[in-house]
C-alpha cells in the first residue's frame, strides 16, 4: 500500500513536471517569420537576424528613405500608431521599418532618417539587408515592389503586425491605413502575450 502511494506520488511529480516544461519550452511556431535566417543590419550598423527581434510585438512596414510619395505617408502612419500605443506597452513592441532599397539605405542613412524624423527611441528599428533577403521578406509580407528608375520604386503599402513569436496577426493595406485599429490590435497582442 505504501509503495502504491509513493508510486502515485512520483507519477504526479512527473506529470506536473511535464506540464511545467510545456509552458517553459516554447518552440518557434511553424508559420513564424523567425524561420527566415537572412542577415540584416540595423540603423546602428549592428548585424542581426530576424530572430533577434523575437519576444516583442512587431509593427512592420517596408519603405525606402528617398521616396517622396507614399512612404512619407506610411512613416507618418507608423508615428500615429506609436502615439496610440499605450505608454506601458512601448517597451514590449518594436516599430520596424525595412528598406526596399538597401543599396541607398545604408545604416548611416537610416540612422539619419530616424533622427531627423523623430524616430530615435529604442522601439524604432530600421533594417536593411541584401536584395535577395529583401525580396524574400517582401514576399513573406505579400508585398509587391519594383524598381522603376534609378531612384524610385513602385510598391504596395502594407503595415503588418506580428506577435512576439513572429506569427502574422494583422495586415492593413492601402493609402488610408486605419492607424487606431492597428494600435488597438498591438495593445491587444501585447496584453495577450504578456499573460502567456
Amino acid at each position: 500500500m505504501k509503495h502504491i502511494i509513493i508510486f502515485i506520488f512520483s507519477l504526479l511529480t512527473l506529470i506536473s513536471c511535464q506540464q511545467k516544461a510545456d509552458k517553459v519550452v516554447k518552440e518557434l511556431p511553424a508559420d513564424s517569420i523567425f524561420h527566415l535566417t537572412s542577415d540584416w543590419q540595423n540603423q546602428n550598423g549592428t548585424s542581426l537576424k530576424l530572430n533577434d527581434l523575437r519576444g516583442k510585438t512587431l509593427v512592420v512596414v517596408m519603405i525606402y528613405t528617398s521616396c517622396k510619395t507614399a512612404c512619407p505617408i506610411l512613416v507618418a502612419d507608423m508615428k500615429r500608431i506609436e502615439k496610440s500605443i499605450l505608454e506601458k506597452n512601448l517597451d514590449k513592441i518594436s516599430l520596424v521599418l525595412v528598406s526596399i532599397d538597401p543599396e541607398v539605405d545604408t545604416p548611416q542613412r537610416l540612422k539619419e532618417f530616424a533622427n531627423t524624423g523623430g524616430m530615435d527611441k529604442a522601439h524604432w528599428v530600421f533594417l536593411r539587408s541584401n536584395e535577395e533577403a529583401t525580396q524574400e521578406f517582401a514576399n513573406v509580407l505579400s508585398m509587391k515592389y519594383k524598381k522603376i528608375s534609378p531612384v524610385d520604386f513602385s510598391h504596395s503599402n502594407i503595415i503588418s503586425i506580428f506577435n512576439p513569436d513572429g506569427e502574422l496577426i494583422l495586415q492593413e493595406e492601402g493609402a488610408n491605413i486605419n492607424t487606431q485599429k492597428v494600435a488597438d490590435k498591438v495593445n491587444e497582442v501585447v496584453e495577450i502575450s504578456s499573460k502567456e
Binding site: T13, A21, V24, V25, E27, L28, H35
Partner: peptide, 17 residues
Amino acid sequence: ISVGSCNKQEPTLLVTP
C-alpha cells in the same frame, strides 16, 4: 529521474530554429 529531467528542462526559454 523525473525530478532530474524537470530540472534539466527549466532553463530553456526560447528555442531558436
